[in-house]
Every structure is written in structure tokens, then in C-alpha cells.
Design a protein around this nucleic acid. Structure first.
Lengths: 338, 338
DNA sequence: CCCTGGCACTCTTCGTGTCCGAGTGCCAGA
DNA sequence: TCTGGCACTCGGACACGAAGAGTGCCAGGG
């Protein structure tokens, strides 16, 4: 069991190390934080913390640095979320308010988050699976060629070309469009399959094949797009990573280009609450030397997607968490308004 | 005036330096290339080349490295474009053939180019300004709210919301849709403004305001989208840049995130032929330590966009140019087919 | 029982000095 | 005009030593 003071020592070590990026020794600690005890006492505490695996020394006669376990404890029990200041909050809101469409919202969010945290920002596009259908449009491009356009409440538009098994008249098309919209408009994606199940029955035999094709394309679109897109930014901040560049930075850049990896990473994180994954807690080994702070965001009460930052395990957790939370909150507001 | 042999010496220096990344001396040169002369002679030639500014030595008692001027001469007069081998060409084609839509084509192209050249790849989406309109669709979402969907022959879809000055009936909308498409379908973007100029006159006075709004939105979309999107990949290859990382790599990463900069960069390059910009020939100073190899590509004879790679000035120009040219050619084919 | 000051010990870092080799420039001769 | 030879320069590698930071441990005091 760790005494109160030892936790305090750990907190001090983490804070100093994050600030200076250099191993911190007992003497420096007592000077910068008034712990009320002497260096010798701190040394004993440090020895205990090292036994427990919370800190380590790079080599004898160097100061201590936190281990991943140490950061974990710090995040769980010692650190709060540092709230943004009022001016910062205003700046966030102003910056995001200028967005003109969904792409712009996401783009601005990425830049903002990267700038605030001085780390790499990752923002997932609002998910289709949780959003609702605003409108489905069918366009006849040729007698047996239809284009399906799906518009979601988050402003995303997806389109698909459909080659019909048989020619499909304008009136049938209008009919299908009307029936389809009356059933699915405003409904959640997940509910769509049930809602359109019996639609083909309402049509003439000759059109049923086409209707079925259109419906299956629609359902495919809904499912396929569950594989989300995302935007990243602030990769230049990777240069502040450490002194032993190439080896550290390369796998991170590689991971960032693998959208699948990132999506999985965000997906695994807790549903909508803030999640911090430290070092090897990230399953993808290219990110073993990084920490990922992520949180869900969305219009209304529910999270429709995630956003977060990727940075060195040696990061300012309270500040980063504060920025991530604040940005998520304001993006949610923007989405709700539009 | 430089003799034939001196040019040969320069070529040898560039080739060796690109391969080894180390300054190359007179002795090593004569050993690896059979120039038919002794090191002493080569030294004289090197001194001459240095006087002319084609090579330089990092410090006394080191070998020579090419200057930007030296690379320029190498590219212009000494190096050809190294063609891809047959298996490589097959691999390119197979890889690109698997693409399912435009996003996929661009995505695959970026990955392919990054892998072939082992550098950072940049691919511009096919330009709207040169492409033609396939279809314009108007959807009524609310009495005074219309969505405009623009479909291009390259498969891109753009949508815009329009708030109408007055309610707009379904019949008027259908009328407008029909007239609009009959005029602009299949036409080039650049011609659209003229073609729709007198459209409002065909409508009732009460609808003219709305028609004008829709048209101006359409024209805006055409123009705005001239500011293209692009995709980049292979940033992990930046780690192979040099030994003095942070300082070199950071501005490059920053430049890569500024799409505006990259678009301007590609835009400035010659129209469709291959362009090589070396070091300070790039106006954006973040890229002063890089070279950019770019070329136009497109379906049919005409270039609709550009693609290229960004790498260190010390790059394998013939190989890179070969890869860039080959990829551009095949992407053009793919686009023409679809 | 816990804290403290003192002390010996261990390493890393940094500066200095030395040596070696690569590479050059220049010159005289073929 | 090319070549071989020679003296010279300079950076990189290595060894050595001093300095400094930090630790662990121990005995004494509240």
C-alpha cells in the first residue's frame, strides 16, 4: 500500500518529467515541490515506488522516470482533467463556428485539436450507423441505371450507381422514392432493414427485381459505411517526440496511415466517456510508445463518433484531456445546430 | 564549357551519392566507374565542377556532394527516365485495377506511388474544371429548401443546401431540373455559366428568385471545387530523409498538411509534362530541402489533375521519374475505362 | 517508528589530447 | 593534357580523467 506522500511524490515526478523531459532526482523534487520532507526521505519513497514498478531509472546515478504503470496510476488517481480557461473556450467556439459544412467541421476540429494539444489529432467522421436518414433520392440516369443518393442527418451524402435487372419507369421510380422516404426518413440506420423488408411486395412483378436491387444497395451502403473515414492532422508535432527520432516516429507515421488501425483503436475505447490508453495498452505495436486520449462526441446526448490525440506517453495528461473534452463538447454543439 | 568527361564525372558523383548518402571522393569514383583516367585527373575535374557550382564539399578533406545546380544539370542533361520493368508494370496495373470507386483509385494510387518510390506521394483528385457534368439533381427537402447534387463524369459528387427566397413547388422544381440537365449534361464546367445564363427568364416571376439562387449556387460549386482536394501517403518514408531529423522533417510535414501549398505547388508545375523541382526551386520554403517530381494525368488525352512525389533532393531521379510516369499513365487508363 | 544528514559509490557526461585515414591541391614529368 | 607523388588539412574514433548528479545505506534524533 502506498502512503499519501508517496503518491504525492509520484505525482511530482510525473509533472516534472513531463515538463523537463529529463529524469528527475530527489533533490530537484524537494526544491520544486514543497513536500515538507528532505531529499533522503524522498529517496526512500522513490525506492519503494520503484519496487512497485511505478518509476524506473534509465541507469544508475540518473533520476527516475515514470513507467507506463506509473502514468496509469497518475491518470487514474492523481490527475484531474484540467479545464480550459474561458478565453480558450471562446476561441474554440469561434473557430468551430466558422465551419461551412461537415468536411469543414471535421477539418477545423483536427487543426484545432492538434494546435491545442501540440500533438497528433484524429477525428472520426460522424458515424452513419448511429445517425438517421434524412432523405433518400433515386435518379434515373438511363433506362436501366439508377443512382441512389443517401443523405444523413449529420450532413453526409453517399451515392451509389445501380444497374437494374430490368428497365424501370419514371413513375415506378417516383413511387419507390416516395414509399422509401415515407418509411425511412428520420429513422435510424439500424432500423432501416426491417422497415423496408416488405417493400417489393407493393410493386408489380416486373419491377420487383429492381426494387430488391435498390434496397439491397441501400442496405449495403448503410453497412459499408460503418467502416468510417477519419481525418488526422498535426503530424508535424511528432518531431517533438524525443531525441531518438527515426525509430520512434516511423511506426507511428505508419500507424497513422493505416486508417483501419486507427478506427479499431478508437472503436475499442470506451463508448463515449474519455479513454486514455498508455503505451502497451494500445494493441497495435507501432503505437506502443504513444498514448492515445479519446472521447466520443455527438449531437444531442449520444456519441456518433470519436476524436482524440496521439502523443508520447510522456504527455501532459490533464491538459490534453481537458482540450480533448472541450473540443468534443463544442463539436457536438456545432453538429446539433446544423 | 564542360567537357564530356566532366559531365560524366558529375553523373558518377550524383549516382554514387544517391546510393551511399556519403560524400564521394576521387579515388572511390575511379574504382566504381571505369572512367579510364586516374584519381588525380578526376580531382582536377572535380575542382572545375566545384568552381562552376555543380558540386561542393561539406568540409575540407571530405568528398564532394552535388549542389542543387548539379542535380539540375543531372536531370536536364545526364539522366533519362528509367522505364519500369514489365513485371513492375503488370503489378501496377493489377493493383489499380482492383479499385471500386474514385476514392479507391486515388487511395490506391497514393499507396502505390509511395511504395514504388519509397517517398511521400501526393495525388490530386481529378479536377472538376476540366471535367464535364454528367447530371444535376435537385431535391426538395422542405418547401423552401432545396438540395443540389452535382455528378461529374469522373464520378465525383458534390452537394449543396440551398435556402430559397420563396417556396418552390414540385412542378417548378421538376421543370428546372429538366431544363438544367438538357442544357448542361455532358458539357464542360467552363461552358456552364453561358449555357444557363437566360434560364430564369423561362420561369414565372415568383420563381425567378429561387432559380437564380439555385443557378448561382451551381456556379459557385463549380468554381469553389476548382480548389481541389488531394491525398497524400507514405509520410513514414520521411524518416529515411537524413540524419538531422527534426529540423529537416518538421517543415515538410507542415507543408504536407497545408493542402493549399501542395495544390499551388502542383499547379505551378508545367501543364501535363513531367516537372522536377529541386530544392529552392520550390517556392514554399518548407520544401527547400526537398525535390518534387510531378506529372499530369487524365482520362483520354487531356490531363485532369496532377500527381507526384516529394523526396529529398538527394533522390534517385531516373527511377522516381519512371515510377511517376508509369503510375500516371495507368491511372489515366483506369479513369478512361470507368 | 519515521525522518534526516552524512558519506561512499556508481555512472554518465564532457572536455582534452592523440592518432589515423581519407581526401585534397599542387607540381613536375611523361 | 594526363599522371604519379607528396605534403597538408581536417574530421572521426578512441582513451583518459575530472566533474557532477544521483543513489543506497547507515546511524542518530525527535
Amino acid at each position: 500500500m502506498l502512503s499519501e506522500r508517496r503518491l504525492e511524490v509520484l505525482r511530482a515526478i510525473v509533472q516534472d518529467y513531463v515538463g523537463t523531459e529529463e529524469p528527475v532526482g530527489s533533490k530537484a523534487l524537494t526544491e520544486r515541490h514543497n513536500l515538507g520532507v528532505s531529499p533522503a526521505t524522498v529517496r526512500n519513497d522513490m525506492a519503494a515506488l520503484e519496487d512497485e514498478g511505478f518509476i524506473a531509472q534509465p541507469h544508475t546515478s540518473a533520476g527516475r522516470i515514470p513507467t507506463e504503470k506509473g502514468y496509469r496510476l497518475f491518470v487514474d488517481r492523481l490527475a484531474g482533467v484540467k479545464p480550459m480557461t474561458a478565453p480558450e473556450r471562446r476561441a474554440i467556439q469561434n473557430f468551430l463556428d466558422g465551419a461551412v459544412d461537415l468536411d469543414d467541421v471535421v477539418g477545423r476540429t483536427v487543426r484545432l485539436l492538434a494546435q491545442l494539444t501540440r500533438q497528433v489529432a484524429v477525428v472520426q467522421y460522424p458515424s452513419l450507423t448511429r445517425s438517421t436518414v434524412r432523405h433518400v433520392e433515386l435518379l434515373s440516369l438511363a433506362p436501366a441505371r439508377v443512382m441512389l443518393v443517401l443523405i444523413t442527418d449529420t450532413g453526409r451524402v453517399e451515392q451509389r450507381m445501380i444497374d437494374c435487372p430490368a428497365p424501370f419507369g419514371e413513375t415506378s421510380l417516383a413511387d419507390l422514392r416516395a414509399r422509401l422516404n415515407s418509411r425511412v426518413a428520420g429513422r435510424r440506420f439500424a432500423d432501416v432493414p426491417q422497415l423496408v423488408q416488405d417493400l417489393p411486395e407493393a410493386f408489380e412483378a416486373e419491377d420487383r427485381g429492381t426494387v430488391a436491387t435498390v434496397l439491397s444497395t441501400l442496405l449495403e451502403t448503410l453497412v459499408e459505411e460503418a467502416e468510417e473515414r477519419l481525418m488526422i492532422g498535426g503530424t508535424a508535432n511528432l518531431t517533438r517526440f524525443g531525441h531518438d527520432f527515426p525509430l520512434t516516429i516511423r511506426p507511428v507515421l505508419e500507424a497513422l496511415e493505416e486508417q483501419v488501425v486507427l478506427l479499431k483503436l478508437l472503436g475499442e475505447a470506451g463508448d463515449s466517456s474519455m479513454t486514455v490508453r498508455i503505451g502497451h495498452e494500445n494493441k497495435y505495436e507501432g503505437l506502443n510508445s504513444t498514448s492515445v486520449v479519446s472521447v466520443g462526441y455527438g449531437s444531442g446526448g449520444e456519441a456518433v463518433a470519436k476524436l482524440g490525440v496521439v502523443g508520447p506517453t510522456r504527455m501532459d495528461y490533464p491538459g490534453t484531456m481537458g482540450a480533448v473534452r472541450a473540443v468534443a463538447r463544442y463539436v457536438g454543439q456545432i453538429l446539433a445546430e446544423s
